[in-house]
Amino acid sequence: SQTQRTQDENEARRIAEEWKRRGYDVEVRNRNGHWEVTWD
């Protein structure tokens, strides 16, 4: 799996939607004030 971090929730949601469209299983988490998008 791969993880991308961002400070911006909207960006995190956009990234998550992009990977979901490509057929990946995606998880979005808030950790210590930043957002992590993990896909595999």
Rank of each mutant, 00 (worst) to 15 (best):
G33M: 03
R21H: 09
V26S: 04
R13D: 04
A16E: 06
N30M: 13
T38W: 11
V37Q: 00
D40L: 14
E17Q: 08
G33L: 03
D8R: 04
E27F: 10
V37K: 00
T6M: 09
V37N: 00
T6Q: 03
D40Y: 15
N10Y: 11
H34S: 10
Y24W: 08
G23D: 02
E11F: 04
T38A: 08
A12N: 00
A16W: 04
R21G: 09
W19D: 01
K20A: 12
A12F: 02
E9D: 03
E9R: 04
D25V: 13
T6G: 05
Q2W: 14
D8A: 04
R14Q: 11
I15F: 06
A12P: 00
Q7M: 10
N30F: 15
N10W: 12
V28A: 02
D40F: 15
E27C: 14
I15P: 00
R22E: 06
V37E: 00
N32S: 06
N10E: 14
V26T: 06
A12Y: 02
Q2K: 11
R29C: 10
E36Y: 14
A12R: 01
R13T: 06
D25Y: 14
S1F: 14
Q7D: 14
Q2M: 12
W19T: 02
E11I: 07
E17P: 00
E18K: 09
Q4F: 15
W35A: 00
N32M: 06
R29K: 12
R14E: 09
R29G: 05
G33Y: 02
T3R: 04
E27M: 10
V28S: 01
T6H: 07
H34K: 08
E18A: 09
G33P: 02
D40S: 15
T6E: 04
W39T: 07
R14V: 08
E11C: 00
N10G: 11
D8T: 12
K20D: 04
N10M: 12
R5M: 13
Y24H: 06
N32A: 08
W35N: 00
T6L: 10
E18P: 00
R13G: 04
G33S: 06
V28F: 03
A12G: 02
K20R: 14
E9K: 04
S1N: 10
D25F: 13
N30H: 14
G23E: 02
V37M: 02
R13Q: 09
E36K: 02
E9N: 02
R21A: 14
T38Q: 08
I15D: 02
G33R: 02
K20G: 07
R29F: 13
R22G: 03
R22S: 05
R29V: 14
R5H: 10
E27Q: 13
E11P: 00
V28M: 05
Q4K: 10
